[in-house]
Measured scan of single mutants.
Amino acid sequence: MGTYKLILNGKTLKGETTTEAVDAATAEKVFKQYANDNGVDGEWTYDDATKTFTVTE
């Protein structure tokens, strides 16, 4: 398990959240659902060194 971070750079929603997941693929699924639930759809990037996903609208 590891802690993964999501940085939201949406047009109307900005912020950060974290999740505990077994791997990056699992964290990505959780974060994409979170972003979708909050109406954020954009370009995704992932930094393996910091376990950080970023979505920018």
Rank of each mutant, 00 (worst) to 15 (best):
M1V: 11
A24D: 05
T12R: 08
T17D: 03
D37R: 10
G10H: 06
T12L: 13
T52V: 06
E20Y: 14
E16F: 13
N9R: 12
T26E: 14
E28G: 08
M1F: 12
T56N: 11
E28V: 06
A49R: 09
E16C: 13
K32R: 14
K29Q: 10
T3V: 13
E57R: 03
V22N: 11
T54Y: 13
E20L: 14
A24E: 06
T12D: 10
Y34A: 03
E57Y: 11
N9S: 08
E43V: 14
Y4S: 00
N38E: 07
E16D: 05
K11L: 12
N36G: 06
D47F: 04
E28Y: 15
D41I: 15
G15F: 14
T50I: 06
T19W: 08
L8G: 02
N36S: 14
D41L: 14
T52W: 02
E28D: 04
D37K: 10
K29W: 10
D47V: 05
L13S: 07
E16W: 15
T3N: 07
T54G: 03
L13K: 13
W44I: 03
A49I: 10
F31I: 01
F53K: 00
F53E: 00
Q33I: 10
N36W: 15
K51G: 06
T19I: 14
V55D: 01
Y46V: 01
K51V: 03
N36Y: 14
I7C: 05
A49V: 12
D23V: 03
A21F: 04
E28Q: 12
G42Q: 02
T54A: 05
A25L: 10
D41R: 14
T50K: 06
T54E: 05
T26L: 05
V30F: 14
F31Q: 00
F53G: 00
A25Y: 12
T3P: 05
K11D: 07
D23E: 04
L6T: 01
T54P: 00
K11I: 14
N38C: 10
G42Y: 03
E57W: 14
A49M: 13
V40M: 08
N36K: 15
Y46P: 00
G2Q: 14
E57N: 05
A35P: 01
E43H: 12
A21E: 04
G10Y: 07
G2H: 15
T26R: 06
V22W: 13
L8D: 01
G39K: 07
T26W: 09
Y46T: 01
K14W: 09
W44G: 00
E16I: 13
G39F: 07
W44R: 00
D41M: 11
V30R: 10
M1D: 06
Y34D: 01
T19K: 04
